[in-house]
Write a protein that binds this DNA or RNA. Structure first.
Length: 493
RNA sequence: CGGGGUGUAGCGUAGCCCGGUAUCGCGCCACAUUUGGGAUGUGGAGGUCGUAGGUUCGAAUCCUGCCACCCCGACCA
């Protein structure tokens, strides 16, 4: 393990790349654009999955699994959907290999061409709606509330670990409803689930909003999103929830018999979050010493590091550490006692800081003598010596973990507030987007042309039209045309 | 796919202009002393210099093709 991470202030993206690798989260793989998620990184993802899955079940959804491959013809059934994804699809054309004539390599067998090519799913609306056609006949079959955990492939030009990879892991919810309003309610409900998850578990404040037409999901009538602010002032879309209208129902002819005896197309939604959340988590909280993980998602919440010279000392410390571990386990705290004698305490301190373990307890001869421990917080890097006679260790630790969770959130919240600027003139817009970055709250005339033009000139896009937008008469930042409310602009990942 | 760059030990690099079988740091192994913020010393292991060909007595170094990766642009969760 080499020392010293690059500094965020010097090279933010280098800092990010190095951190991801050195903290053992993920690395590049033999396959271009695809990553290997390492055990430590994957265990954070598993914690996210477990919590989200619980929240999906609590809102009445069930998991299912649909195939990786989609017949090519399915994709083209919904016009804007195919347009949105066609350029980034991996295509399976053959089903067999054979030895080359010189016997030295393996080649695609030209005789094994598929009659209809298969695409590797970039998202599953089409296979799922083709299936829903068979599942839905009557209003009694509705609503249909399904989620799947899966991998998808989008052939991207430029990739970055977690933020944009060719293959990524995600969940995609796909629901069908009898009425427009019910589908919209579902869309908003899942957006709220995502927002709650981000804020409560990831300690990541998010703005809930609606996408402009330019940024809308291919095939959706409306795309809702949660947008987060990273430490370099760039925005990151952390989750999306789409109101599909009857688009896919019409494309795949999914109709249901109403109570009144009519026959109508069903209303759909889809919503997803991906391993991109890992990127958000890293970029929102971490510092120049390494990861900073919110306790609710940290694979190890507390690490105990012994400091000792003799075996005898170690045994005493180990006894005490085991005592503490047992007490913490009764409160469901995940503890790791690092008894390796192959590394020195100072090395371990740096290592656990790099990996973002929220709380570190160190115990040495002095502590044995005084019945104390040294407690260090990862988020503030502060240390204090605690007298074990004065506290209940399990209560002390759980309270401390809650405090850390809260502090991390508050810090990110304050940062986002600081990085959200109201701008009222085009000059101000140009100045702020260059000098400060962050969210720029500005009036917009509501047209795609204006949005395009602004993107062209500044690389900033409309991240969303906030759901809590205030009615406010104003003039478009670029064109001066009338506008009835502010939207959020930012440069984005 | 355009423009630029880089491939030398597990990782990061020097050497390349000016040809003579490869430098340094981290890591790894052994032993000793160490252990309250990334220990120190001594000894050791590890390399078809991305790949194929060419020039040459001799190529990491010069020439050509190919491959991979990185950065910058157009596309995107």
């Amino acid at each position: 393990m080499s020392k010293g991470l690059p500094k965020r202030s010097e090279d933010y993206s280098l800092w990010y790349n190095e951190l991801v690798k050195r903290a053992d989260l993920a690395e590049n793989s033999a396959v271009r654009g695809c990553m290997v998620i390492k055990p430590y990184g994957y265990s954070i993802w598993e914690k996210m999955q477990a919590q989200l899955d619980k929240m999906f079940k609590e809102t009445g959804h069930s998991n299912a699994y649909f195939p990786l491959f989609i017949p090519k013809s399915f994709l083209s059934k919904e016009a804007s959907h195919v347009e949105g994804f066609a350029k980034e699809c991996a295509v399976v054309t053959h089903y067999r290999l054979k030895n080359s004539d010189d016997g030295k390599s393996v080649i695609v067998d030209p005789d094994a061409k598929l009659e209809e090519e298969l695409i590797v799913r970039p998202t599953s609306e089409t296979v799922i709606w083709s299936t829903y056609k068979n599942w839905i006949q009557s209003y009694r079959d509705l609503p249909l509330l399904v989620n799947q955990w899966a991998n998808v492939v989008r052939w991207e030009m430029r990739t970055r670990l977690f933020l944009r990879t060719t293959e990524f892991l995600w969940q995609e919810g796909h629901t069908a409803h009898a009425t427009r309003q019910e589908a919209i309610d579902e869309t908003v409900q899942m957006l709220n689930v995502y927002a709650t998850f981000a804020e409560t578990f990831m300690a990541l404040p998010v703005v809930k909003g609606v996408k402009s037409a330019n940024e809308r999901f291919a095939g959706a009538e409306d795309t809702y999103c949660i947008e987060a602010m990273m430490q370099d002032g760039k925005a990151l879309q952390a989750g999306t929830s789409h109101f599909l209208g009857q688009n896919f129902a019409k494309a795949f002819d999914v109709k249901f018999a109403t109570k009144e005896g009519g026959l109508e197309h069903v209303w759909g939604t889809s919503w997803g979050v991906s391993t991109r959340l890992m990127g958000a988590l890293i970029m929102a909280h971490s510092d120049d010493n390494g990861l900073v993980l919110p306790p609710k998602l940290a694979p190890i919440q507390v690490v105990i590091v012994p400091i000792y010279k003799t075996d005898e000392e170690f045994d005493k410390i180990a006894n005490k550490a085991n005592e503490i571990t047992k007490k913490l386990l009764t409160k469901g705290v995940s503890v790791h006692f690092d008894k390796r004698d192959t590394h020195k305490p100072g090395w371990k301190f740096a290592e656990y800081e790099l990996k973002g373990v929220p709380l570190r307890i160190a115990m040495g001869p002095r502590d044995l003598e005084n019945n104390t421990i040294e407690v260090a917080r990862r988020d503030t890097l502060s240390k204090e010596t605690v007298d074990l006679a004065q506290i209940q260790i399990e209560d002390y630790v759980t309270e401390m973990l809650d405090k850390i969770q809260e502090t991390i959130y508050q810090k990110a919240f304050d940062f986002r507030k600081e990085m959200t600027t109201e701008v009222n003139t085009w000059d101000e817009f140009l100045d702020k987007i260059e000098s400060k970055g962050g969210f720029l709250s500005a009036h917009w005339d509501g047209t795609s042309e204006t949005e395009e033009k602004i993107k062209e000139l500044t690389k900033a896009t409309i991240r969303c039209i906030p759901l809590d937008q205030n009615e406010e008469q104003g003039n478009c930042i670029l064109t001066g045309n009338p506008s009835s409310g502010r939207v959020l602009f930012a440069r984005a990942y």
